[in-house]
Design a protein around this nucleic acid. Structure first.
Length: 548
RNA sequence: AGGGACGUAGCUCAAUGGUAGAGCAUCGGCCUUUUAAGCCGCUGGUUCAGGGUUCGAGUCCCUGCGUCCCUACCA
């Protein structure tokens, strides 16, 4: 008896814990009946520890042509002998040859074809969409065959047996035993169309994952990409750190934070919107190259490219600059694309995204903010009067409700985002370099022209993937920029924008010159997996809670 | 926040304002090389909720709830 066999005559279910039948859908009731049938066979419907399992793909690859042939020939020879010598005894027959590899596998039943005394099952696991098991009355043990007759789609089973090829050439585990892995009491989605409803897909990801194998593949690709990034950064001497998620002041970005409260000290706290100011403190302390891959929380809009919590990598390199961290990012994106191509079995050097074919092996294009602006608008961005007129002509606001004129560069940037960004070829990863200094409060101004900052943003497929900076490490300049930012903001904004004095204090201690960057992991995985919504690449994206 | 589309069986989807349907799944029967197995038979619905118009509403109107898309917002 295997460890999956029970000897006591209980079905293992306390009647008191069984929901009243009136509450349940008839399809679930039927499945509960089928679960009882499993118990009645003396088997545990919910399985138990099972050593020695192979992934389905491993089992498939373990097939051995010559041993299968030898076995089939010996079976045929015995059959022929028996036909010619009907009265011969067992031991006079030709020997049965069977060196076929035996595999032990587990998976969820996604298709089943019951031919009477032969039941075909297709199992699915993380490695394979469908691996065939044959459960025959002749060759499988009695309990296993009986189990095959009472299975429901979606059940998890464990099969063991030799590998053979069917008449149509499909590698199949010809089960000698079949045992329950787990019962699925919930009616599964349609077996071909899968689960389509986007709401259910997000809410019940555990169903989506097995009904739509692509979902699992995407989430596994995400994991492999993140691992590859860690490996690459480790090789380059970067150390991974963790900095506070709960912050007394949510700094390092301009976004509304989520607010919470620390009871022990009776003080308000924010969930972080970025780790930047803490990572820089680590540079002050003497860590040479640091990064963090972790969650940020922003209390802003939710749409196909924004989730309230999202994963970003932030990275800082002491004695580097914007160029050195751009190199790191190009290496990361290129490596991620290689992982994605390998994982998805894609030949060549491109990955598709919508209609685009994006080549990540070529060096990324480089343009400056000013060049792109002039190309799009037809006049240099230094001509702020013209910019203001142009903005008004194109219907942009140039002053606030109280009639106060917006800053020149704010107007320039509106035009840039409205027109210049559209000139970037979405199929070519592109660096936009040298942003206006006024837009980048944490960036060091360019040495030759301080009206520009040494900041570059990476654009791919029309998405802003992440900013890169030569970090500002002069505490006085930093303090002045903070104060400048805080002036001229309205009351609502001032409730969540605060002045981080300790950060200035840290800079006073002395931060080495440094390059820094931030990169959205979710958006990177969207590009690498070809998914056009952020929900596809997050295991459990935010969904509105169900009303009871 | 504004605009648009949608909500029908467990799932995927149909149904000029005129008897709510199909496929798959389920349930019963047959079948030892099937693979979207096949064959025979059965079952399955408060058409998101609540109002209204009408002889008659899944369909038209209103309100609410929910989802998706576009726009806006969002270093």
């Amino acid at each position: 008896m295997s460890e999956n066999t029970i000897t006591e005559t209980t079905n293992g279910h306390d009647e008191a814990h069984t929901p009243s039948s009136e509450d349940l859908h008839k399809l679930e009731l039927q499945r509960r009946t089928n679960r009882d049938a499993v118990s009645d066979l003396g088997l545990r419907p919910y399985g138990s520890r099972t050593p020695g399992l192979m992934d389905l793909i491993e089992a498939h690859n373990a097939y051995d042509e010559s041993s299968d042939k030898a076995n089939k020939e010996s079976v045929a020879a015995r059959k022929a002998f028996k036909k010619d010598n009907p009265d011969a005894s067992e031991d006079q027959q030709p020997a049965l040859v069977d060196d076929r590899p035996i595999v032990k596998v587990a998976g969820r039943v996604v298709l089943a074809r019951d031919n009477g005394k032969l039941v075909w099952l297709n199992l699915r696991d993380h490695s394979s969409e469908a691996f065939q098991i044959a459960v025959s009355k002749r060759d499988c043990d009695e309990q296993g065959f009986a189990l095959a007759k009472v299975l429901d789609m979606g059940d998890i089973v464990i099969a063991e047996g030799p590998l053979t090829k069917t008449n149509t050439g499909e590698v199949t585990c010809w089960a000698s035993s079949l045992r329950p892995g787990s019962k699925c009491l919930v009616p599964p989605p349609e077996k071909h169309a899968g689960l389509q409803d986007p709401e259910t897909r997000a809410r019940k990801r555990y169903i989506d994952m097995w009904a739509n194998p692509e979902t699992t593949r995407t989430l596994m690709l995400r994991s492999r990409i993140v691992s590859a990034i860690r490996r690459l950064l480790g090789e380059r001497g970067f150390v991974e750190v963790e900095t506070p998620m709960l912050q007394t002041q949510a700094g390092g970005a301009a976004a509304r934070p989520f607010l919470t409260h620390l009871n022990a000290l009776d003080i308000p706290l924010s969930l972080r919107i970025a780790p930047e100011l803490y990572l820089k403190r680590l540079l002050v302390g003497g860590m040479p190259r640091v990064y963090e891959i972790n969650r940020n929380f922003r209390n802003e809009g939710v749409d196909k490219r924004h989730n309230p919590e999202f994963t970003a990598i932030e990275l800082y390199e002491a004695f580097g600059d914007v160029e050195s961290v751009m190199d790191v990012t190009e290496a990361i994106v290129r490596e991620a694309s290689r992982v994605a191509r390998a994982e998805r079995g894609i030949e060549g050097t491109t990955l598709s995204y919508g209609d685009l074919e994006i080549d990540y092996e070529q060096p990324f294009l480089r343009v400056t903010y000013a060049e792109l602006f002039e190309k799009a608008l037809g006049f240099p961005m230094s001509d702020v009067g013209k910019a203001r007129a142009e903005a008004q002509k194109r219907g942009y606001k140039t002053k606030n409700e109280k009639g106060v004129e917006f800053d020149d560069l704010w107007v320039v940037n509106e035009l840039f985002e409205g027109f210049a960004e559209k000139l970037i070829d979405p199929a070519r990863p592109t660096w936009v370099m040298k942003y206006p200094a006024a837009l980048s409060p944490l960036t060091r101004p360019n040495e030759e022209d301080p009206s520009f900052a040494d900041r570059s943003d990476l654009f791919i497929a029309g998405m802003e993937i992440g900013p890169h900076y030569t970090e500002l490490n002069d505490p006085d300049v930093q303090e002045a920029k903070f104060r400048e930012q805080l002036s001229g903001i309205d009351d609502e904004e001032s409730t969540f924008r605060t002045f981080d004095e300790d950060f200035i204090e840290a800079l006073k201690v002395g931060m080495p010159p440094a390059g820094g960057m931030g990169l959205g992991i979710d958006r990177l995985v969207m590009l690498m997996s070809g998914k056009e919504t952020i929900r596809e690449v997050i295991p459990f994206p935010f969904v509105r809670p169900k009303q009871s």
